[in-house]
Write a protein that binds this DNA or RNA. Structure first.
Length: 634
RNA sequence: GCCAGUGUAGCUCAAUUGGCAGAGCACCCGCCUUGUAAGCGGGAGGUUGCGGGUUCGAUUCCCGCCGCUGGCUCCA
C-alpha cells in the first residue's frame, strides 16, 4: 500500500501502482469524471501514471489553467489525427499550446489547407472524439523512435528527436495515430468536446526563413461550450474595437495604398494626436526636459559613426543622391549626441534631457505592417538623458514615474520586462552589472513587479520594456527605457567633474508612449473609440430640434468654444433622434439639445453619450461640469 | 521578404455554369419643422486594385504586379 496526500491535507491509502485515475475514482466521482491530468508531487502527469510510493496527489481538471492547457494540447493531437486521416500525405512538425489557443505546424506536401477544409477536419475530429479512443503513453528508446519516424518519412519528428538528450522518449498513441510528445494528455479523446478551428497561416520550420514554410492551423478548446462561446464573443468584440476599423469610421485616420506603412491623419485624429503630444510635453516639462528638433535625413557617415549602419541598416530607408548616400533617421540619438557636444558640459549640467517628437522611418518587412501599430513612418515621444553613472538609479526612477503618470491616466496596466546583458555585449562587464543592479533598484523602489529576460538586452546596454494590455487583453510593447554605454564613447561625449577631470556620461534612451502611431492605435482600441472628454476630438455637438433654433445653437456653440471646448453644430433639417443617433455613433461625449423650451429659459438640455439624458442645465453649470471633467482627465 | 487568403460605389455587401454591374447606409436636391439612437421622395456616384492573356463577350477563367488580412521573423 502507498499513502496519498490530497490537497486538502487528507491522506488515503491505495494499492501500490494504482493509477491516479483509479485514486480519483475512490476520492470523488466528480473528479473521476472531470479530471484531465494529475499532479504527483507537483509534476503534471497523465492520469494513467502509476503511483509506486507515498506521494502528494492533486487531480487536475480543465477548470484550471494547467488542465486547460492539457486539454488544448490533446485537442492539437486530435486535430493532427483528423488531418492525417483526411490527408495521409501530410507531415507533422510541432503542435504546442499558446495563450487561449493551440496550433499545429504541418507540411501539407503541396496541397495547401484552407479554412474551406475546416468543416471536414472538425467533423473528423468530432468523429474521433466520439470513439473515445484512449491516449496511451508509449516509451521508446531514442534510436527506436528515430527509426520509427525515419521509416514513416516524418523528417520533422526525426529532427526533433535527434536533438533530444534523453535515452527514452515518449510517444502517445490514440487509435491508429501516434505522435511524439512529452505529454501529459487527457485519458481519452472523449474528453475533447468543445473545440473550434480558427485560422490558417504560414510559419517557417523552426522560425527560420531558410527552412521549409509550413502551414500553421490555429484552433481553440475549452472545458465548456459556454466558455468557447464567450471566447468567440471576445474575438468579435476585439474585431469591433479594431483601430483599423474604428479609425476610419470615426474619421480619425486612414491607410491608403498610395503610401503603405504610413498613417494619413484626418483633422479629428490629428487633434487627438496633438492632445496626446501636449500631455506628454506637460508631464516632461515638469521634469526639466528640453524639447529640440533635429534633421531627419543625413549622409551615411553619421550612421557609420553611431553604429546604426552596421547594426540597424536593414531597418533604414536609404536614399542615393548624386553626391551622397543618405539615410532617413530611424532614431534621434545621434543628433542629440551632436547637440550634447555643442558645449563643454559640466557635472552640474547633468542630467541633461533632450526630447523630440519628430518623424522617424524604420523599414520593416512589408508583410509585418499592421495598421497604425506597426508602420514605416512613426513618431516617438523620444528623449535622451545624459547622466552621470551615479545618477542611473535616480534617473530611472524618475522615468518610471513618468511611465506611471501617463499609463495610470489612461487606466492602462502594464507589465515590465528587464532585459539583461546579451552574448554580443560591448563594454565593461562590471559596468553592466552596476547598471542592471541600478535598474533593479529603481524597479523595486517603485514597487514594480518585473520579469527578467536574461540575455535579451541591446548590445549597448540593458533595458526595460513595457507591455501594455488593451481592454481586450492583447499586449503591445510601447514604453522602453534603455541604458547605453556605447554611444557616449562613439561620439566622445564628456563632462567635467568637480575635480576638473573629463568623465564619460551615461545615456538613457527612453520613449514612454513609444510610437505615437502605435499608442494612439492602442488607445482607440482601449476606449473602443469613446475617448475621455479631454481627448475627444469633438467634445460636444449642439443639436437644435428645428431650423428655427439654429441661431440659438450658434450662440451656445460659440459660448462653449470661447470656454475652450471643441464643438460642432448639427443644423440640418433632420429629426432630433436622427441627429442623436449620428452623434452617438461618433461617440461624442456631450450632446446639447436645444428646443423652444430651452431657448425661452436660456437653458440647454444635456445628453451624455453613456449616461443618457441629464436634463436641463444652465450654460454656466454645463461649462463647469465639463471643465471639471477635463481637469480630472475624465 | 515568405506561405495562405483576399480586393466590386465613401462604408457594408449582392451579381445562375463567362452574357447590359445592383442594394442598404452615407452624400446632394426637394418635401416635412421635427423633443433624446434611423421621416418621405428624387438624384448623383463604378475603367469591378493595376497591367497583360484566353474568349464573339471577363467582376467571373489564366499570368504578372500592387494593396490588405492571418501568421512566421523583427520590433515602437
Amino acid at each position: 500500500m502507498v499513502k496519498i496526500t490530497l490537497p486538502d491535507g487528507s491522506v488515503i491509502e491505495a494499492a501500490k501502482n494504482s493509477t491516479a485515475h483509479e485514486v480519483a475514482k475512490a476520492v470523488s466521482p466528480r473528479l473521476y469524471k472531470e479530471a484531465v491530468a494529475a499532479k504527483i508531487n507537483g509534476e503534471l502527469v497523465d492520469l494513467s501514471r502509476a503511483i509506486d510510493r507515498d506521494v502528494q496527489l492533486e487531480l487536475v481538471t480543465a477548470e484550471s489553467k494547467e488542465g486547460l492547457e492539457v486539454l488544448r494540447h490533446s485537442t492539437a493531437h486530435l486535430m493532427a489525427h483528423a488531418i492525417k486521416r483526411l490527408f495521409p500525405e501530410v507531415k507533422l512538425a510541432i503542435g504546442p499550446v499558446v495563450e487561449n489557443r493551440f496550433y499545429y505546424d504541418i507540411d501539407t506536401a503541396g496541397r495547401p489547407l484552407s479554412v474551406e477544409d475546416f468543416p471536414a477536419i472538425e467533423a473528423q475530429m468530432a468523429a474521433l472524439a466520439d470513439q473515445n479512443l484512449p491516449l496511451e503513453r508509449v516509451m521508446m528508446k531514442k534510436e527506436e523512435a528515430l527509426a520509427y519516424f525515419r521509416a514513416s518519412g516524418d523528417q520533422y519528428k526525426e529532427e526533433i528527436i535527434s536533438e533530444l538528450e534523453d535515452e527514452q522518449v515518449s510517444l502517445y498513441r490514440q487509435g491508429d495515430f501516434i505522435d511524439l510528445c512529452r505529454g501529459p494528455h487527457v485519458p481519452s479523446t472523449g474528453k475533447l468536446k468543445v473545440f473550434k478551428l480558427l485560422s490558417v497561416a504560414g510559419a517557417y520550420w523552426r522560425g527560420d526563413a531558410n527552412r521549409p514554410m509550413l502551414q500553421r492551423i490555429y484552433g481553440t478548446a475549452w472545458a465548456k461550450k459556454s466558455e468557447l462561446d464567450a471566447y468567440i464573443k471576445q474575438l468579435e468584440e476585439a474585431a469591433r474595437r479594431d483601430h483599423r476599423k474604428l479609425g476610419p469610421e470615426l474619421d480619425l485616420f486612414s491607410f491608403r495604398e498610395e503610401s503603405p506603412g504610413f498613417v494619413f491623419w484626418h483633422p479629428k485624429g490629428w487633434t487627438l494626436y496633438r492632445l496626446l503630444e501636449d500631455f506628454s510635453r506637460q508631464v516632461q516639462a515638469r521634469r526639466n526636459y528640453q524639447e529640440v528638433a533635429t534633421p531627419w535625413i543625413s549622409p551615411s557617415g553619421l550612421w557609420e559613426r553611431s553604429g546604426h549602419w552596421y547594426h540597424f541598416r536593414e531597418n533604414m530607408f536609404i536614399i542615393n543622391t548624386e553626391e551622397n548616400t543618405m539615410a532617413v533617421k530611424p532614431m534621434n540619438c545621434p543628433y542629440h549626441c551632436l547637440l550634447y557636444k555643442e558645449q563643454t558640459r559640466s557635472y552640474r549640467d547633468l542630467p541633461l534631457k533632450f526630447s523630440e517628437y519628430g518623424p522617424l522611418a524604420r523599414y520593416e518587412k512589408s508583410g509585418t505592417l499592421h495598421g497604425a501599430l506597426r508602420v514605416w513612418g512613426l513618431h516617438q515621444d523620444d528623449a535622451h538623458l545624459y547622466i552621470r553613472e551615479d545618477q542611473i538609479a535616480e534617473q530611472i526612477s524618475e522615468v518610471l514615474g513618468i511611465v506611471d503618470e501617463i499609463y495610470s491616466t489612461f487606466g492602462m496596466p502594464y507589465k515590465v520586462n528587464l532585459s539583461t546583458r546579451p552574448e554580443n555585449y560591448m563594454g565593461d562587464p562590471a559596468l553592466w552589472e552596476k547598471a542592471e543592479a541600478a535598474l533593479v533598484e529603481a524597479l523595486e523602489a517603485a514597487g514594480l513587479p518585473y520579469e527578467v529576460q536574461a540575455g535579451e538586452g541591446a548590445f549597448y546596454g540593458p533595458k526595460l520594456d513595457f507591455d501594455v494590455t488593451d481592454a481586450i487583453g492583447r499586449t503591445w510593447q510601447c514604453a522602453t527605457i534603455q541604458l547605453d554605454f556605447q554611444l557616449p564613447i562613439k561620439f566622445d561625449l564628456t563632462y567635467v567633474d568637480s575635480s576638473g577631470q573629463e568623465r564619460r556620461p551615461v545615456m538613457i534612451h527612453r520613449a514612454i508612449l513609444g510610437s505615437m502611431e502605435r499608442f494612439l492605435g492602442v488607445l482607440v482600441e482601449h476606449y473602443a473609440g469613446a475617448f475621455p472628454l479631454w481627448l475627444s476630438p469633438v467634445q460636444a455637438v449642439v443639436l437644435p430640434i428645428t431650423d428655427a433654433l439654429n441661431d440659438y445653437a450658434g450662440e451656445v456653440a460659440e459660448a462653449l468654444r470661447q470656454a475652450g471646448f471643441r464643438v460642432e453644430v448639427d443644423g440640418r433639417s433632420e429629426k432630433i433622434g436622427y441627429k442623436i443617433r449620428q452623434a452617438q455613433m461618433q461617440k461624442v461625449p456631450y450632446m446639447i439639445i436645444l428646443g423652444e423650451k430651452e431657448k425661452a429659459a436660456g437653458n440647454v438640455a444635456v445628453r451624455h453619450r453613456s449616461e443618457g439624458d441629464l436634463g436641463q442645465f444652465t450654460l454656466p453649470e454645463l461649462l463647469s461640469r465639463m471643465a471639471a471633467e477635463v481637469k480630472n482627465r475624465g
